[in-house]
Design a protein around this nucleic acid. Structure first.
Lengths: 340, 340
DNA sequence: TTTGGTTTTCAAATCGCTTTGAATGCAGCA
DNA sequence: TGCTGCATTCAAAGCGATTTGAAAACCAAA
């Protein structure tokens, strides 16, 4: 069932049918009714390839998935993707996932652009001098960055959470509780979000006239293994840290284990605040003790990014899109006064 | 830069250029060289929409993501997707993610088919009488099922792991160690994989002339919360279970906590074997104690499914594609002899 | 009954590729 | 020289939509 058939069926021209279905004003209302009724009845759906060719828009947005980067396709990505696709599905826009090696990013972009496969891209996990921004700008491919690339002057759209503020507040809170030896288990150190978090951590400590101990700062991938190793190493130092900040729930699980293995009690001997991206299957509230977190739903960010991309397609200038989301600090049982 | 331009640049017809680039045999080798060199130099890439329209193939495969089903878009899905897309990227085939509500599956399928958006679909999380198989078969949309739908007679392609065998072996092993009160924390009970696991569990117990205790069997979503709740309830029973089977690493984390909270030691007072889909960020080997698992990489399954879909596109009949993967049983520290 | 101005509809061009069926060039052979 | 056969190349016709520019239909006013 193609447009031609439908038009013949109705005794109308393709033009009119096309316009009726796409909501053009110059179609008689009675005709429009008749057309859309027939389309529904006969199960007509425009062939997307044909439409895309004719309109020049692909009707799809690409989500790049860093494969070799320090930040892998992990649970964050899946929540994020889920947020995006839920929103886009309502607009009949496809989400095309594009795995991408850090090595040959630019060639892949070039191909994406040349083949007109997607109308826009969502980038994730920026580094401070992210080269992708210049590359895509030059290629004329609209994109939205999830996160921020600090040192890039080229105007572009981004949405980020206030990582610096979140970790500053979390650290401040620990300081308020009397903790002075606070360990930081950060994300991959080349990523801006990790840099921002470290900055927040540092500034909170320095605001009290203290100096962060570089020996208590670690980073790396968000795996429980990494959290465990770092925490264990930190706990061996004397005097030992009395509080931890963890960059993700995954590393937090590892820290959890290390604390227990050292015979310490979380929330009493040692405190911890972890960043929570809000995974439906790993709930900070249900842990024992429940986990204090800096919380920001990555799924919600995905949904909002989808929304913003739609606005960009409707002409909203990318340089006007800068969203910095506040992050909640949720205090639960894993934080308590510093032991003395 | 389109085909026409490239052809003009070379002083050749579009036909020849197209054929040269697509590897047709009737093109002079020298010409082919010249064409592909020029294409590379000028950065020519065929417009996918145009190609798709001309060939009638969309060059994309759809991966449906169950949204409202008992099995959500979770960490499994993201690993799986990653496996598929890695493989497909080499073939210039797009992965389109299609979130889908259990309610209106068939209409969505109908739309997908009518709009020729994807050439094939990957389905996940089948139930025993999965209606999607009949729907897609009727619509003529090729698909590959990840998992099996027990009671559906319609021939179709599937790839599954031997859930029943895995849990039979795991249970047998626990019985060998002297455990008789074994608790089962299964996945969502309407899913075939969970049904198969339960069957394996039961048959291993019955093979020893014992009877599984229905009070020690639970199911539900793969969240740590669910694992925790079920394990805690089971541990309150007297005599208490001495061993646990967990359907995923997420539930295993919850069970872990419940065991600890009950003041018991894993690997000594209580044993546990969990199913491990092999997440890069949550390693059974690194847990303390390390976790015995039934292991099968869901990412590898994704990659293989991509491979099989490619073969289907080359004409391999779907009904000839049935792969049942064996599952490893990896023994680590979380399993030990039953306390006496 | 014209006329001028809206609505409403239409035929044909277009998007950029693939593919069909025909044409061309060239070598070998009588 | 003329003919056959093979290897190459080409012009033109799709693919199924959108969109342009023109025509038809309608209506109210002159």
């Amino acid at each position: 069932m193609k447009l031609k058939d439908l038009a013949a069926e109705l005794g109308l021209s393709q033009t009119t049918v096309s316009r009726a279905l796409n909501g053009f004003p110059e179609v008689n209302e009675a005709t429009r009714q008749r057309v859309s009724e027939a389309a529904r009845r006969l199960g007509y759906r425009a062939n997307v390839s044909a439409r895309r060719l004719a309109t020049g828009r692909s009707g799809a947005i690409g989500v790049t998935l860093p494969l070799q980067r320090s930040l892998h396709f992990g649970p964050h990505t899946s929540e994020f993707l889920s947020g995006i696709s839920e929103r886009m599905a309502q607009h009949d826009i496809d989400i095309v996932v594009t795995p991408i090696d850090a090595d040959d990013e630019v060639p892949v972009f070039r191909r994406l652009v040349a083949s007109k496969r997607v109308d826009a891209l969502v980038l994730s996990a920026p580094t401070p001098n992210d080269e992708r921004i210049a590359a895509l700008t030059e290629l004329g491919m609209p994109f939205l960055m999830h996160g921020r690339a600090d040192n890039v002057k080229i105007p572009h759209a981004w949405l980020d959470i206030d990582n610096e503020g979140a970790f500053r507040r979390a650290t401040s809170h620990l300081l308020d509780l009397g903790h002075t030896r606070i360990a930081m288990i950060n994300g991959p150190e080349d990523q801006t979000f990790a840099i921002h978090r470290l900055r927040g951590f540092r500034s909170a400590i320095e605001a009290r006239g203290l100096t962060p101990d570089p020996q208590l700062i670690g980073g790396g991938r968000f795996t429980d293994e990494n959290g465990f190793r770092l925490a264990q190493a930190f706990l061996e130092r004397r005097p030992r840290p009395t509080a931890f900040l963890a960059g993700s729930m995954m590393t937090a699980l590892g820290v959890f284990r290390a604390i227990r293995l050292a015979g310490l009690e979380l929330g009493k001997d040692v405190s911890m605040i972890a960043h929570d991206d809000v995974f439906p299957y790993l709930n900070a509230d249900n842990m024992v003790p429940s986990m204090s977190t800096t919380r920001s739903s990555i799924r919600a960010a995905g949904a909002r990014i989808a929304e913003l991309l739609l606005q960009m397609q409707d002409g909203k200038p990318p340089e006007s899109i800068h969203e910095l989301w506040p992050v909640e600090l949720v205090l639960r049982e894993s934080t308590g006064p510093a032991p003395r």
